[in-house]
Design a protein around this nucleic acid. Sequence first.
RNA 1: UGGGGCGUGGCCAAGUGGUAAGGCACCAGUUUUUGGUACUGGCAUUCGCAGGUUCGAAUCCUGCCGCCCCAG
Length: 365
Amino acid sequence: MKTVYVGMSGGVDSSVTAALLKKQGYNVVGVYMKNWTKDLPGMPCPWKEDYQDAKRVAVQLKIDFKVFDFQKQYHQKVVDYMIAQYKSGKTPNPDIMCNQEVKFKLFLNTALEDGADLIATGHYARILQAPDQNSKPSKLQSQLHTAQNQEKDQTYFLYRVSQDALSKSLMPIGEFKTKSEVRMLAKKLGLATADKKDSQGICFVGKVGIREFLQQYVSTTPGLIFDQAGQEIGQHDGAIFYTIGQRHGLDVGGGLPYYVTGKNMKKNEVYVTTNLDDEKLWSDTLNLTDIHWINGVPDFTKSYSVRSRYRAPLVNATLQVVSGVVKNNKNTLQVVLSDKIRAVTPGQSTVIYDGTKVLGGGVVI
RNA sequence: UGGGGCGUGGCCAAGUGGUAAGGCACCAGUUUUUGGUACUGGCAUUCGCAGGUUCGAAUCCUGCCGCCCCAG
């Protein structure tokens, strides 16, 4: 009997994951990852409640339950990264980093050392064993595929997970076509979390305003806001708080809404436009760095589809290596899109798909 | 101090006798395991101030205050 450690967040999805695997005959151990416990202004940390919900479900399922305390590492790998990125004017995606570093590295390794054969999470994504096209006596490889539920697909957050980690992971929720099916099953099993509201905001931290969060760690000074004509139209309280495409929070009114088109961290200036068609807001080429390929470098002569923010529609694209050979490293990859997309933002990730298969992706420069 | 114009919620702005449109911003909620976007709702008992006319005025009259433009 294989032992699987299930990351239980206290939500429905991971609760059902644990229940399903138990039913399938695994020796299931529930694990609550204690990554963040700090209250923030306007957002008390939900960890205690989440922990209790996870524990409650573990008791209902009669499975072992453990707590892994990763607070220190979460802070180093996710929070520090996030703050550093914001300071440099980028808009990072902490949850992608969390999956890469915490869930599918630290949690995986800790679980394996603790006696696990596999880990599992409640992600809406599928891990499929399929033949490696490139190997001669085609061996099986672990691939990441989009969830059956296209609406909830979470592969966007998972493109940085390694193939090796995938080979030791299970994501049974990816087979569900709708969220309500997951909920119904949870209800049928009588799980305590069946009706718990979906969580939002930064994973583990909760639904904090990014502004309140950053204010805990950086000091800011007011700066100027300029419109598309170069006219000064107002003041902001720190360029770090603003991101491309953003509309609210500028506190400047007039006739039309203002959208952020860019910013200069050094001058502490924010640039905006009232024109939704402004070319600064739309682009059909993206340059990516920090490329990560799950199953190796793909065929650049083919065309793929691409997603540059969570839940955004897929856009057809071709890939071009700008410098050097693109492996899992720092070379630049240019992505040419078939259609323009709005508000491409440095620091955010773009994920590349071949049908339902996730090839990998990179971070927008 | 000759001529002309204007003053409506934080901003822009309809409304010129019948009892305050709309947009932006802001706030709240919805959607969303990042940021952001989008959507829904809320938001002036009151129209620079003071009098007057009228059944009734932000809308007409008078005075005052403030701002802008053209003159000289």
